[in-house]
Simulated scan of single mutants.
Amino acid sequence: MRAVVFAYHNVGVRCLQVLLARGVDVALVVTHADNPAEAIWFDSVAALCAERGIPYITPTDPASPELFAQVRAAAPDYLFSFYYRHMLPAALLALAPRGAYNMHGSLLPKYRGRAPVNWAVLHGETETGATLHEMTAKPDAGAIIAQVAVPILPDDTAHEVFGKVTVAAEQALWQVLPALLAGSAPRLPNALASGSYFGGRTPADGRIDWRQPAQVIYNLHRAVAPPYPGAWTVIGEETYTIAKARLEVRSARDFAQNLAPGLAVADGRILGIGGDGRVLHIHALLNGGRAVSPIDLQHALATHPALPIPPKKGVEIQ
Rank of each mutant, 00 (worst) to 15 (best):
P109L: 12
C49S: 13
V315W: 12
A231Y: 00
I270P: 00
A300L: 08
I273G: 04
R250M: 14
V26E: 01
V249L: 14
P186T: 15
P59C: 14
G99E: 08
Y8I: 04
L122Y: 06
A143T: 07
A245C: 09
A27L: 09
R14M: 04
P227W: 09
Q318F: 05
W210H: 02
G99M: 13
L271K: 10
K164R: 08
M103R: 10
Q318L: 06
P116K: 11
D155G: 08
P189M: 13
P55K: 13
N287Y: 10
A300G: 07
L16M: 09
R187D: 11
L297T: 10
V292Q: 03
A225S: 07
L220F: 00
G129S: 12
Y56D: 02
A266S: 10
G275P: 12
L95E: 08
C49P: 05
L93C: 00
A182L: 06
L286K: 09
H299C: 11
F42A: 03
T241W: 15
A90P: 00
G142K: 05
N118K: 10
A204S: 11
G314L: 06
H104K: 03
E316G: 02
A214W: 04
R72D: 06
V216F: 08
L192N: 04
P310C: 08
Q215K: 03
R207I: 03
A120S: 07
P36K: 03
D296Q: 01
I309Q: 05
P308C: 01
Y8L: 04
F82H: 08
A47R: 13
V150K: 05
D34R: 15
D267C: 15
W232N: 00
L259T: 11
R72S: 15
G163P: 01
Y111R: 01
T166E: 07
F42D: 02
T31Y: 14
G262F: 02
A130Q: 02
P310R: 03
A179S: 12
F198L: 01
I242E: 00
A146Y: 06
A225R: 04
G124I: 15
I145E: 10
G199N: 00
R52F: 15
Q175L: 12
F6T: 07
P154H: 14
Y228R: 01
L132K: 14
P59F: 13
